[in-house]
Structure formats: C-alpha cells, structure tokens
Design a protein around this nucleic acid. Sequence first.
DNA 1: GTTATCTGACAATAAAGATTGTCAATTCTG
DNA 2: CAGAATTGACAATCTTTATTGTCAGATAAC
Lengths: 224, 224
Amino acid sequence: MAHVNTLFMASSRKARLYGGMDADERRTERRLKLIDAAIEVYGEVGYRSATVKAICEAAELTERYFYESFANSEALLIAAYNHVVGHLHEEMTAAAAAAGDDAEARLHAALTLYFTRLKQHPKPARVFLLEISGISPAVDAVKLDAGRVFSDILVPPVLDAKHGDRGAAATLLSTGMVGAVISIALRWVSKQYPQTVEDVVAIAASFCRVALTEADRRRDLRLR
Amino acid sequence: MAHVNTLFMASSRKARLYGGMDADERRTERRLKLIDAAIEVYGEVGYRSATVKAICEAAELTERYFYESFANSEALLIAAYNHVVGHLHEEMTAAAAAAGDDAEARLHAALTLYFTRLKQHPKPARVFLLEISGISPAVDAVKLDAGRVFSDILVPPVLDAKHGDRGAAATLLSTGMVGAVISIALRWVSKQYPQTVEDVVAIAASFCRVALTEADRRRDLRLR
DNA sequence: GTTATCTGACAATAAAGATTGTCAATTCTG
DNA sequence: CAGAATTGACAATCTTTATTGTCAGATAAC
C-alpha cells in the first residue's frame, strides 16, 4: 500500500526530507537498490531459489520495502529483467548507429557489443538468458517483447506498406534468428566463454544473415 | 521404498499376480500411467502448477504410487520429457532414413515430421518446448542432451578425425540451429499454428542450412 | 474359506516462504 | 526540544504442497 499523502500535499509542497531526499526520491532509491540486489542474488542462487528475504538482506532493506515497490517476486523479476535488457538494447542500438548504414556492419557492431557485455557480466547473463523462461505468462510476455526489440536492432524490419507490420514469415524468421543467437549466447556463457567474442559473433552473424537476406529478398520483390 | 522380496524370490519365482500381472508389471504399468497423466496435467496447467496430487488423480492412483516410481516431481518431469522426446526423435530418425542419402532431403523429412507432430499434440509441445528451461541443473542436462540428439538427426555431425568429436565452432553452430528451430516451433505452437507445416519447415530449414553448409565447408577442407 | 498381500482413501506431519502486523528507535521539522 | 514521520527489526500468520503414515477393505493363493 504505497501511502501517498494526497490530503496535505495536493499542491507541489514536497514531502519531508530524509537524508536530503524527499519521499519519492527515497522510494525510487530503494526500488533501485532492490533491483540491484535481485540481480546479485539471482546470479548467486538463481531466480527460483532467490527468496524475498535474501534479496532484502542484500539490498539492506526489510521486507516492508519490498512490498512497497513490488507486488511480488515476479514483479521484481520483470523489473530487473527490463532494467538489464533495456540498457543492453540501448547500447546495442547506439553501437549499430555508430557503425553506419551498411546492414552487415551494423549487425556486426551490435552483436559484438552484445557478446562483449555478456562476457563482462556472467551472473546476470546466465539468469536472464536461461531462467527467464516459463515462469509465468506475464514474464513470458516481457521476454517475447524483448525478443522483438532485439531482433529489430539486429535486422531492422522491412515493414509491409499495406498492413504496417511485417508478414507472418518474417516474424518466424526473426524468432528463429533471436532463438539462434540466444542459444549460442547461453551455451557460450555456461561453458565459460571458450571462444573469443570475435568467433562467437561470426557464428551468430551467420544465422542473422538468414533473416537479413530474406528481408532483402522481400524488399526487392516489392520494388520490382 | 520399493519393496522387493529378495528373501523368497531369489530364484525366478514370480510374485503374486494381481489382475493377471506380477508385481513388476503392475509397477511399470503404474509408472506409465503417471507419465501419461503428467503429460496431460502439465499441458493443462503447466509444470510449475502441476501438483503431485493432481497428477495422481489424473492417473487414478494415490500419492503412495507416485513415490513408488519417482523420487520427486522433478524425476517425473524428466521421465515424461524423455518419454515424449525420445519417441519423437526415433520417428525423426526413421523419417530421415526413409528420405534417402541427400542431406537436404533428410533434413526436410525430419523437420516435416517434427512440426507435424507438434501440431498434433499442442499440449505436450508447449510444455516440453517452453517450461523445460531453468528448472534445475538435472533437467537442464537432460534438455541439453536432447538438443544434441536433435541436432545430430537434422544435420549429422562431421566428426573430427583427430579428436573424435566436432570442433568448438561446430558445437555453436548446432546450438544455434537447434535454438532457431525450437524458437520457431514455440512461437508457431503458441500462436496456434498460423502457418502451414510446409511453410514453417521451409523457414526452419533455412536456419539449418547454415549449419549444413558449414559442415560441408569443413568436410571439403579436410578432403582437399 | 482362511490368510497373507496389495490397494485406495485419507489423515498427519513437515517445511518453506510469502505477506502482514507490531513496536521501539531514529530522523526530521518547526 | 517536542512532536510527527519514517525506518528497521522481527514476530505472527497464512498458505501451500510435499511426503509419510495409518487402516479398512479388496484380491489372490492355497
């Protein structure tokens, strides 16, 4: 029950300060600490064995604050996932943009950033690649959405002018591409990075090329 | 505690018959009923929400018989998974063999059988494609193994003469291929089969071709 | 038909963890 | 400093399900 004092601060009067922060700031700070702690704890023992208590201890907060920010464990998982993956996707987008206009070069840049980050952060990598599956419909939806974003970064979609979305075949191509890259990543991570980033990127790229060339083929068809 | 009468039937004397079956037969029959019931229940509510009690009810057996055949829920999950996937793999192998010697034709035959079966059995398909991830290390190992078998059926490995196994790059290629096919399958299943089997097979095959051509390339290198 | 074995129903126990509630100590405001 | 808001520690409760145990009735062997 997030207690917001609507009675006495209907105007913009700030709530009492604690540690120099007002109520909202303190709350979001705690929320962030919980997310960081969750990533830490998930990495240690996995999501399934991560208790609310353990996460709170890692965050140096008590259970009360857990329920202040999250309805339940699952909500925190989703928040943590979005936190990590959202940032990663931003970086990938930037890397792709910096690589210029060539589709192949952009793909290579984005993948290189992806695998580099995975290697830098083994713990969260494992959790968010593997354990994110089959938790609940809500989590599945979040994951599905992330997959779409991931795909669009690697191979920007060719939109169907008529319907405003990609065709059914293109969806399956994206799905396959993302599945391939993530499977490769998962294996690479869990075997503790036996190949160089460069080598893994090359292999992953070869699967992305399937979707890329198919996209090209479709564009050509349209323009002919 | 599986009670085996070692004292009085050290020789081949059969245990008392019930319903025409001896003790062993009855036990394996019950075990099979539990596996079938598990597949059913998993399909309804998912593995995570499938209680021992619900599975026993579906099997028309009491909890006692659950623990007679399985140490815990996870053991049953593994048994059910192996049951379903093992049979599927056998069929795929047979389909590939029937398709002759051409790698491309064998691939097509095996994939067609795979997607056909998925369409025939939506419930188990969903569970064993999706929920099998991240349950426990034991389950992960089983899944990993199944992935290897699956890959070997689709694209028979080119063994490295020196080391007797495939190279590191080939492993990642297999991983990516299987990941792509399974992701495509999962999407196709959960969207309730919007494309024809034929179309899905064509798309899945295009990812397998990545691994296939790479395998060819490596064979050529060796023979040169 | 009598006895030993097996079965099915169900109670009893156990364990783990989520969620809520209490209260004293701390920190701010005026 | 007095009083109010906020925090941290921790107890209490609730729920859920696995797992084990009991026992009366059913079934087969002799």
